[in-house]
Design a protein around this nucleic acid. Structure first.
Length: 856
RNA sequence: GCCCGGGUGGCGGAAUGGCAGACGCAACGGACUUAAAAUCCGUUUCCGUUUUCGGAGUGCGGGUUCGAGUCCCGCCCCGGGCACCA
């Protein structure tokens, strides 16, 4: 049979079946663009959000338009598309939007280096990446496309800023902030734990600047508590967020400076050790240092020490290897519990950033204090005794941090330290010198950026009225286009006179605009809401619509956003919730974090995350040209469990290609049988044993593939099962002369393989599906469901073990009782050999699996 | 130090407490071909017999169980997050 010319009427008048590509050769480069255009034109991925029956909001993290995509980026979109197509096939109303996280520094750097305007650079990249995403056959509702750099979008990002401002959650303060020479200010979340910039890797220093902050700390408790609602999030992401929030419970206790009466409040998680305090340690930046040392003979020494510490980054100062250092101030503080005077030291190991910047030092029971005390010859007093091996301060080599019995602890002596702790805090409360207290690690969110390519902060500074928010009616505060990047250093907006000079919205007097822009993280904190009403002009979204479509049913993205984007988005949604705009408290009901795709570097043979800077990227464009999008998709899903990192292999891609070729060829070679076979369910009993077995495997595979997708997104094992089924189908002899039931079963097998592949390799699936004579798209075909009667076995092969090792095999009727199975197992000649001379102690029968005979 | 993952053939990986190594890659042998590619068939955990078979084997050491890659206890190693966090 050659290429057949046939056609049908297509659907909805669109004649896509004009010609058949049925040929020995698998024509991916012809069929892929054809079906992409078809799905697009027919609007398979467009959804009317006014109707939310059986809604399924499937969202992939939108990309930053950095240029071109590599196959590592593709994993995200391919997984999302597989899920969306699966749900769509099941008849869900699936919302799968796509957009661009389009503000950010790379655009500005390109402008400086190449003289391209950031807008032009960004829009070009969007066009490029959109073409790539389309070429993968990933289906989106493009009518909802958004770009955060569009004034129609950032108007509402500014609105969000103002909402926080009016809620008292946005404030401006002069504070030491993280500073990267290249990227300007950074939020704490953007600084890696080694003290380098998360974006560019340069060292981060501290700088005093007046900046805008969001009070995310006010929501710390809720952000922590509501993690419990996120039972469909990966455990490790919840752990990372809890870690980052860093709640710790303890007490606040007021010490006073003996000589001046100044208050020196500390936070401790171990108030039970209060009677062991032998000195006080405060941070060099602590306000008391300046105040106390002003006219003190030790001033020079102490200030020199403090200056030296302030020059260092927190990371340098507090590195594991940095030795503990300090200097005595000449002052003392009074322990409110026992009235004791202990010396006040300025130390490098206490930081101003956490707690109160002052620490009651208990060398006997804190390792850091212990090391410091040993170094400077300060006393060590044991107040918790190890009942088994009493501690002796003169011989201790490390702090005792475990629990024990309180000693030398005034009225609390003799009690267990854990048990007494609440009473000890209560004592402080009763005496007005302290209380229970909670401290968090998370700091307020630094939102200002000294950059051009972002949404301007909608604030005006008026000489009369002070800080004035721009009224909503005057939004958006437009980013001016006419900026010269080459000739300017720093933020060009700060020198753009026509932008800066304005009038006060309150009094009309001449005023100045804020020149900082909003961190791009805020832009991506609410985009999932905007997708519901993307073109709305008078509001950011319609609450009713948003409440029906959110939370997002499935969010898919990279683990690198575990804290940053995901924590910020949760915060913003909670703010909107409290302000009455949305009914839900959490934006993403389920989260899936895919692993990174890595590739071995040709230079050093090491495995690295695919990135342009490492030079180990694989371009999807070439692969699609050579093998087609379906091959690329199939391989990407087959590479391994999607939540884990994976190593890209160019040769393994060919395996996926080979499989699709075999499938195509098989379809071509048996097209006559397939088309002429009865298209109806088969009675398994009417099949010959070989066909019956494969028919059962078919239905087992439907079950397995469905379960793998539903339970864990384990597309790798789903695809393996389809391959296994196809291998079995290929070995099944079939011809036009085969009996009707056999041909019908064969047709069902082949068609089902095509349908199961639909979410993974949609183009070839759609093409073969149509070639088999179906008029409707495969997306309308429904998801296959296993037939119980096809799954029935009337015979089982059981392994027979003797003492846990397989010695023989028996075939038993499915109806056989345990007694009968046991008898048959005992009779098997391979088994009797191993039973000779032994006494049977116990026989275990596992239905359908094995028999184990235990002997003496 | 604390909190998450993870450790299985040459490689990626698979296994509701039930026959370890599915599926794929690579390698090797064979068929087809003048030849090569492609394709198809077969072999491929290790050790010994080299087929019929037996033994060992899922990071290490114990344990529970008729039966452990899987569960429990104690370790080692690798990756990630947090960290002089008071």
């Amino acid at each position: 049979m050659g290429a057949t010319e046939w056609s049908d009427s297509g659907i909805n008048g669109s004649n896509v079946r004009e010609r058949s590509y049925m040929n020995e050769r698998y024509p991916f480069s012809e069929i892929e663009p054809k079906w992409q255009a078809f799905w697009d034109e027919q609007g398979f991925f467009r959804v009317d959000t006014r109707n939310s029956d059986r809604k399924y909001y499937c969202l992939v993290m939108f990309p930053y338009p950095s240029g071109t995509l590599h196959v590592g980026h593709g994993r995200n979109y391919i997984i999302g598309d597989a899920v969306a197509r699966y749900k769509l096939t099941q008849g869900y109303r699936v919302l799968t939007p796509m957009g661009w996280d389009a503000f950010g520094l790379p655009a500005e750097n390109a402008a400086k280096q190449r003289g391209v305007h950031p807008k032009e650079w960004t829009l070009n990249n969007i066009a490029q990446m959109k073409r790539q995403i389309r070429s993968w056959g990933v289906g989106y509702d493009w009518s909802r496309e958004i770009a955060t750099c569009h004034p129609g979008y950032y108007k509402w990002t500014q609105w969000l800023f103002l909402l926080l401002y009016h809620q008292g959650l946005a404030y401006r303060k002069n504070a030491p902030v993280n500073w990267c020479e290249f990227c300007t200010t950074l939020a704490n979340e953007e600084v890696r734990s080694d003290g380098t910039c998360d974006r560019c890797g340069r060292p981060v220093t501290r700088r005093m600047l007046t900046q805008w902050f969001f009070k995310i700390t006010e929501y710390a408790q809720q952000l922590l508590d509501d993690l419990a609602l996120l039972d469909r999030w990966p455990e490790r992401v919840r752990a990372m967020q809890a870690n980052w929030l860093g709640r710790s419970e303890g007490a606040r206790i007021d010490f006073r400076v003996a000589e001046t009466g100044d208050l020196c409040t500390i936070f401790t998680t171990r108030p039970d050790t209060i009677y062991g305090v032998t000195f006080m340690a405060i941070a060099p930046e602590h306000p008391l240092v300046q105040k106390l040392m002003a006219n003190h003979p030790r001033r020079a020494e102490v200030e020199a020490f403090a200056k030296r510490q302030e020059m260092l980054s927190v990371q340098q100062r507090t590195a594991e290897t940095a030795p503990k250092e300090g200097v005595f101030t000449g002052y003392h503080v009074v322990n409110p519990y026992n009235g004791e005077r202990v010396p006040l030291w300025v130390t490098n190991y206490v930081v101003m950033d956490y707690g109160t910047g002052a620490v009651m030092a208990v060398p006997a029971h804190d390792q850091r204090d212990f090391e410091f005390a040993r170094k400077y010859g300060l006393p060590i007093r044991v107040v918790i005794q190890d009942p088994a091996h009493p501690l002796d301060p003169t011989t201790m080599t490390a702090a005792w941090v475990d629990d024990g019995v309180l000693v030398h602890s005034g009225p609390f002596t003799g009690r267990g330290n854990r048990e007494a702790m609440p009473d000890m805090i209560r004592w402080a409360k009763e005496h007005g010198v302290g209380d229970f207290a909670v401290t968090w690690k998370i700091r307020d969110w630094l939102i200002s950026r000294q950059r051009y390519w972002g949404a301007p902060i909608p604030i005006v500074y008026c000489p009369q009225c002070g800080t004035v928010p721009v009224p909503e009616s005057q939004l958006p505060v437009l980013l001016p286009d006419d900026v010269d990047f080459r000739s300017e250093q720093g933020n060009p907006l700060a020198r753009h006179e026509r932008f800066l000079s304005t009038t006060c919205p309150k009094c009309g007097a001449p005023a100045r605009r804020e020149s900082d822009t909003i961190a791009q993280w805020l832009c991506s904190c609410w985009y999932f809401l905007r997708y519901i009403n993307p073109r709305l002009e008078d509001r950011p979204f319609i609450p009713d619509d948003v409440n029906r479509w959110l939370p997002v049913d499935q969010y898919i993205g990279g683990i690198e956003h575990a804290v940053l984007h995901l924590l910020y988005s949760r915060f913003i949604v909670k703010v909107l919730h409290r302000a009455g705009y949305v009914a839900f408290r959490e934006p993403f009901a389920a989260l899936f974090t895919q692993g990174m795709i890595c590739k071995r570097s040709e230079k050093d043979g090491q495995l690295y995350k695919m990135s342009k800077s490492k030079g180990n990227v694989v371009s999807p464009d070439e692969l699609i040209r050579e093998y087609g999008a379906d091959t690329l998709r199939l391989y990407t899903l087959f590479i391994g469990p999607p939540e884990k990192d994976a190593e890209w292999s160019d040769t393994a891609v060919e395996g996926a290609f080979r499989f699709l070729n075999r499938l195509w060829r098989r379809g071509y070679e048996t097209l006559d049988v397939l088309r002429s076979a009865p298209n109806e369910p088969v009675d398994p009993a009417s099949l010959e044993p070989d066909a019956r077995e494969v028919y059962r495997k078919l239905h087992e595979t439907i079950q397995k593939v469905t379960r793998d997708i539903e339970e864990s997104f384990h597309f790798n094992t789903a695809i393996a099962a389809i391959m296994e089924l196809f291998n079995a189908v290929e070995r099944l002899p079939i011809s036009a002369d085969s009996p009707a039931p056999r041909r019908a079963a064969y047709r069902e097998m082949f068609e089902t393989i095509v349908r199961l592949l639909g979410p993974f390799a949609p183009h070839i699936a759609e093409e073969l599906w149509r070639e088999l004579g179906h008029e409707q798209s495969i997306l309308k075909s429904g998801w296959p469901v296993a037939r119980p009667e096809a799954l029935v076995r009337d015979e089982h092969e059981l392994a027979v073990q003797v003492n846990g090792r397989v010695r023989g095999r028996i075939r038993v009727p499915a109806s056989a009782s345990h007694m009968e199975i046991e008898a048959m197992a005992m009779k098997d000649p391979n088994v009797t050999r191993w039973l000779e001379g032994r006494q049977v102690r116990k026989v275990v029968v596992v239905p359908g699996r094995l028999v184990n005979i235990a002997t003496n």
